[in-house]
């Protein structure tokens, strides 16, 4: 406990780092996955190609991707941008399929109704497919959030600081308090992200709350 008391400031600093290293890629990844997923949802061949390559991307070990990043995008070795970009790639890989499936989750008769009323392609996306896809997309986002929080901790090995540092420190010294703090911190952060996404999805889907007549 005395260890914890003495390191509170540092812990919050690391937690904050961790939050944005995991959170920013979530937002950027969603912004990229939306158009890609939309394209995939409209074209079977694009769907197969995108979902397959996304699956392959996701199998690249995170450490390898972190290390390769400077070579690919020409950043400095210690630049946290490496982590942000790598995490964005993972997020996109997870979300492309989810977005495509979410946009296709609109019932057939609703989709036909939209066409019959004279919706254009873009308007249908914004006013019908996207709002109705929110529950599916949000569930994918929850998975991505938790997975990001856990993968980011590996970035300590390439010198980007966040809660993973506590794990490394605890492991090196065979000292429990930082180890436990790091694990609990990651857990709380994952829960926080999850809560925010669930809350956001709820706000965006008021029609799912009314109950039935």
């Amino acid at each position: 406990m005395s260890w914890l008391g003495g390191h509170l400031g540092e812990i919050f600093q690391l937690a904050w780092q961790h939050a944005w290293l995991a959170g920013l890629p979530l937002l950027v990844g969603l912004a990229i996955a939306l158009p890609l997923g939309w394209f995939a949802s409209r074209n079977t061949r694009a769907y197969v190609a995108l979902v397959t390559s996304a699956g392959l991307l996701y199998t690249i070990p995170s450490l390898a991707l972190f290390v390769l990043m400077p070579l690919i995008i020409g950043t400095r070795i210690l630049d946290p941008v490496n982590v942000v970009v790598a995490m964005t790639i993972y997020t996109v890989a997870l979300l492309v399929r989810v977005v495509a499936d979410g946009l296709q989750s609109v019932p057939d008769d609703v989709r036909s109704a939209a066409r019959a009323m004279g919706f254009g392609v873009v308007r249908r996306l914004v006013m019908v497919d996207l709002p109705l896809g929110v529950p599916v997309i949000a569930s994918g986002l929850r998975v991505a959030a938790v997975s990001n929080v856990s993968i980011v901790s590996v970035a300590s090995l390439i010198g980007t600081h966040q809660l993973g540092d506590l794990l490394v420190d605890g492991f090196n010294r065979a000292f429990a308090p930082p180890l436990v703090t790091g694990i609990v911190g990651c857990l709380l952060l994952a829960l926080l992200f999850d809560g925010v996404i669930v809350w956001g999805a709820r706000v965006l889907t008021p029609w799912l709350r009314g109950g039935t007549a």
């Binding site: 019932p107 008769d109 609703v110 036909s112 109704a113 019959a116 009323m117 019908v128 109705l132 889907t205």
Partner: peptide, 11 residues
């Protein structure tokens, strides 16, 4: 256009 099974926008 009135669609089979109403096809209302649920949202």
């Amino acid at each position: 256009y009135v669609i089979q099974h109403a096809g209302l926008f649920p949202h």
